[in-house]
Amino acid sequence: MTRKRGRGMAAVNYPTGMNLGGDPSQALIHATTTGSFVVTLSSVDLGQGLKTVMAQICAETLGVPTDNVIIDTADTDTGPHCMGTFASRGTHRIGNAIIMAAKEARAVMLEVAAEELEVDAGDLVTDGAGAIHVKGSPQKSISIFNVALAAHFKHGKSISGRGIFLQPRSYPEPETGKMTPATCYAHACTVAEVEVDTETGEVAVLSLKSAYEVGRALNPRMVEQQIIGGAWMGISHALYETTEPYYPDRAHGPVDFNQYLMPGPGDLPEFANVVIERPAADGPFGAKGVGEMTANSPIPAIANAIFDAVGVRVDSLPITPEKVLRGIRALNA
């Protein structure tokens, strides 16, 4: 039995948001009478955790605990326009819209607090725990609960805000392709280690060690979810998946999860990940979109590791055991 190990690497970047921009999203925020904040969107959570991160962004901007924020999405009768959840745009576009809306709401909240405390709004800070106080004088304080009550029932003010983010559309020059595809890019580099069975062409991925530059990890465990899940999908694309196993021949297309091949829980490598943050100038707290990118660097890294192991280049995806075996046979022929 011959098993050969190899390692390979790949480095990638990934644009945040719809290519060429022109993809707005809006957010509306209002305070309830008791000082909770409702963020109204028509944005979709596919499982990446959009609702959670949007609440965090709103809370950070308002200066309140995340638990005090309610995300109300996604109903087109109530939620303002959102282009959609794709193109690694959610955190960046919707997050920026929420920051804009939350700043407006925060200004009203501080105005009301200032009137209640009989101080200048410019001297007020939020403590992040549900109260507002005079900078340097924590004892001169009012709870956001009381601010919200006062705003509604005493001052007749709506603590609310409107936000939109639009990266203006870029139109490529037809001749040269001069364009602005995106304003910020996330980055990644993966080192893959594989073991190739030279008699069967089977490839086992032993480890994926990656560095990801994400702008700012707004919720580290959720970034990690994207990283691990994405890296798994990268393995899957590299070695397993297709709806047309004999492309361009249309035969034998899988119709269920038995036939549609993806790595099982017994095919997992060791994952090791490092996160680097270079905040994006226009990102919400510097964040970039990372969800899509995480699947990309493992694919070529695995392909390069296979070459390193057995000297076979499989330049077509997926790299099936059969393709590897045929490559090994051709080398030995």
Partner: peptide
């Protein structure tokens, strides 16, 4: 869990 498909997590956190 070998008969259960997950498309998001990469299985590792589940295990």
């Amino acid at each position: 869990i070998s008969g259960n498909i997950c498309r998001c997590t990469g299985y590792e956190p589940i295990i």
